[in-house]
Design a protein around this nucleic acid. Structure first.
Length: 668
RNA sequence: GCCGACUUGGCGCAAUUGGUAGCGCACCGCACUUGUAAUGCGGGGGUUAGGGGUUCGAGUCCCCUAGUCGGCUCCA
């Protein structure tokens, strides 16, 4: 009987005393937990013979989650210390922080947050230990009799039901409670149903936390359930890291397209028009028009045909497509034309409901059906900047990225099963190539597939399989990371979506390429095959920008308003050092204007420094400054948005440099 | 849609416990004519999102509507 055990740590076998824990093994103060045979455990967990163990650094992803989850517990303790009637929901870590849900009579206010932060600070300074205790369902039900939501979680666990994403309270295996023990007295100050692990004590949370906002959230994420009050917070190993995080948040706020849209005079959402309906101002209009023009040009080169369709249609179209049955809530209510009858009660004019279109596909389908189609006509690629209207719920509207009226760069490709793979490959490459031209170049793909056994998915299994396999093949060939999204397919077919990371690392879903077996069936689409038989085409729905407005918003944030010269509303501004040099600058500027550059000379009464400031704030890519020295040398001086300057550039070279940057879609 | 907060001249903000709206930028005018992020002086502009109520009196309190923001749910 040995009183020592052997464990493997960092590839080395160590002999340690039986009953040893992470406290003995890991000396670094930045280690907050143990990983034992791949599983996270408290530092207080006792190792067993043969365990493979390692320390979890607080700054690792697992370490941060543990820190944040422990901070959530401290928050909950603080809430109940101030309001003992508050009932606990769940409190998991999330990206950059944590939240905890509470059922309270009065919602929290921002002032409450400050008071709670102080109370948390006291708990943290108290150095309470987090102590794990195994319990049973029966005991826990008694102990947590005053916590109805915890009881529900215990019930779900016993019933082996999924608790829902993010719940850290109960997991597979033992039911555990964490006690917060006062180190001085040994008293239990607070407890929570939790599977852990936790920091060894609250002191490790330190000063790197902050409560950020309050919000309501449905219990267990279900709209039918009661709303609880959620408090969000953030937590970091050090106060410096907290500050850095807060600065990142501020940086993101500065890039917010809604803010830049107003500052740069690009677009607005006049209240008089209605929620989620934007108008583009002249400057935003230039950017949008250039975006669209280039897209048109590329589509034309790639064999797309341009079509147009009206904004409203009689209801039958969306009855056939199935949208009225499935998604009527997402559509604006109809314009109703009343039936007219003559004096004999005979219908003189039939009534009709006209709907604003929430999508363009049925129109393109009607164009397909306008004549008999041969396999020789396929693939048929129809493209339209189609403006659609969707009655988004008021709470989800968000600037240009979630609006009620927006324009899709929508294409529908009608293909034969034989050409499907080649066409998909082509479309994906086309999409990625074009996105790169707009300055996005960091992508991954998501493959959304059918959920087996779910009856909502229509269409033949064999087609699903071959289509999914084809999409997967095409996606894999792109060489990009491919993330599976099982069950995420639309009911009518699988899809690939292109996710793009922007300049500050956020990801946006951009393009989608969807296969559709449903609409060809519903609209009874056919073409004549080479052998004379009637065949059903497959439809590919493809939006590249998704919505132009949304893409515009994403690009605005990606560039933080510093659009590359080819997109910038004003590409060049001339700034004379003094009025005397205005004429000289006009001479240069007129050459640029003749070459199609958007350019002006600032002849206002402002001083040069003020003009530089104004145009820098306006994000004009090229400021051309000229004074006596430049004029004497036949040169001009460049100043860029970031303050860089290059003086004495010969005029011809300056013009060429500007034209080259625009032509090549360079960023400056 | 749900919960909460918010809504003051074009923009950003002020207005002690309710006592009849101020500032900066922008705008207009005048003067100044200057080498790399704000020249000076003067002027115009709001009845405080809209509507209703309490009060001697409301930007400040209450109610309704609209809109915005943060979340939740949703996103064909």
């Amino acid at each position: 009987m040995s009183n020592s055990i052997k464990v493997i740590h960092e590839g080395q076998q160590l002999e340690i005393a039986a009953g040893s824990t992470g406290f003995e093994l890991f000396t670094s103060k930045t280690i907050v937990a143990s990983r034992v045979n791949g599983e996270l455990k408290d530092l207080a967990h006792k190792f067993a013979d043969g365990d493979v163990v390692e320390g979890v650094e607080i700054s690792s992803q697992d370490g941060l989650n543990i820190l944040r989850h422990s901070t959530a517990h401290v928050l909950a303790q603080a809430v109940q210390s101030i309001n003992p009637e508050a009932k606990l929901g769940i409190g998991p870590p999330v990206t950059d922080g944590f939240y905890y849900d509470f059922d309270v009579v009065e919602p929290f206010t921002p002032e409450d947050l400050r008071a709670l932060e102080k109370a948390m600070d006291r708990i943290i300074r108290g150095g309470q230990r987090f102590v794990r205790r195994v319990t049973t369902d029966a005991d826990a039900i008694v102990e947590l009799a005053n916590e109805p939501y915890k009881l529900e979680l215990i019930g779900l666990k016993s019933g082996n039901q999924d608790v829902g994403e993010g719940a850290a309270e109960v997991g597979a295996g033992e039911l555990t409670i964490y006690d917060n023990i006062d180190p001085a007295t040994g008293d239990t100050k607070w407890r929570d149903l939790c599977r852990g692990p936790h920091l060894p004590n609250t002191r490790m949370i330190g000063a790197g936390f902050a409560l950020t906002r309050v919000a309501a959230a449905y219990w267990r994420g279900n709209e039918k359930n009661k709303q609880l009050q959620r408090i969000y917070g953030t937590a970091w190993p050090t106060k410096d890291e907290l500050r850095a995080y807060q600065e990142r948040v501020e940086e993101a706020a500065k890039r917010d397209h809604r803010r830049l849209g107003a500052e740069l005079d690009l677009f607005s959402f006049p209240e008089e028009i209605g929620s989620g309906l934007a108008v583009f101002h002249p400057k935003g209009g230039i950017i949008r028009r250039v975006m669209e023009d280039y897209s048109r040009q590329r589509h034309e080169e790639d064999g797309y045909e341009f079509v147009y369709s009206p904004h409203i249609t009689k209801s039958n179209l969306f009855e056939t497509s199935g949208h009225l049955a499935w998604y009527a809530d997402g559509m604006f209510p109809p314009l109703q034309l009343d039936e007219e009858r003559d004096e004999n009660g005979v219908v003189r004019k039939q009534g009709a409901d006209y709907y604003l279109k929430p999508m363009n596909c049925p129109f393109h389908i009607l164009i397909f059906k306008s004549q008999g189609r041969s396999y020789r006509d396929l693939p048929l690629r129809m493209f339209e900047f189609g403006t659609v209207y969707r009655y988004e719920k008021s709470g989800v509207l968000h600037g240009l990225t979630r609006a009620r009226g927006f324009t899709q760069d929508d294409a529908h490709l009608f293909v034969t099963p034989e050409t499907m793979e080649a066409e998909l490959t082509n479309v994906l490459n086309f999409v990625l190539d074009l996105l790169r031209d707009y300055g996005l170049d960091d992508f991954y793909l998501e493959l959304s597939t059918k959920e087996e056994g779910n009856p909502k998915f229509v269409g033949d299994d064999a087609i699903w399989q071959s289509a999914t396999a084809t999409l997967e093949k095409v996606a894999t060939q792109s060489g990009l990371e491919l993330v599976p999204d099982p069950g995420g397919a639309a009911f009518y077919g699988p899809k690939i979506s292109v996710q793009a990371r922007d300049a500050i690392g956020r990801t946006w879903q951009m393009s989608t390429i969807q296969l559709d077996f449903n609409l060809p069936e519903r609209f009874d689409l056919e073409y004549t095959a080479a052998d004379g038989s009637r065949q059903r085409p497959v439809m590919i729905h493809r939006a590249l920008f998704g919505s132009i407005e949304r893409f515009f918003g994403v690009l605005t944030e990606h560039y933080a308003g510093h659009f590359p010269p080819w997109l910038a509303p004003l590409q060049v501004v001339g700034i004379p050092v003094a009025d005397a040099f205005s004429e000289y600058l006009h001479g240069i500027v007129s050459q640029l204007r003749e070459a199609g550059v958007r350019v002006t000379v600032d002849d206002s009464d402002d001083r040069m420094q003020k003009k530089i400031r104004n145009h820098t704030k306006d994000r004009v890519p090229f400021q051309l400054i000229a004074g006596g020295e430049d004029e004497a040398a036949g040169a001009v001086s460049f100043r860029y948005r970031d303050g860089r300057q290059e003086n004495g550039v010969p005029v011809a070279e300056a013009i060429e440099r500007i034209l080259t940057a625009i032509r090549n879609k360079e960023q400056v």
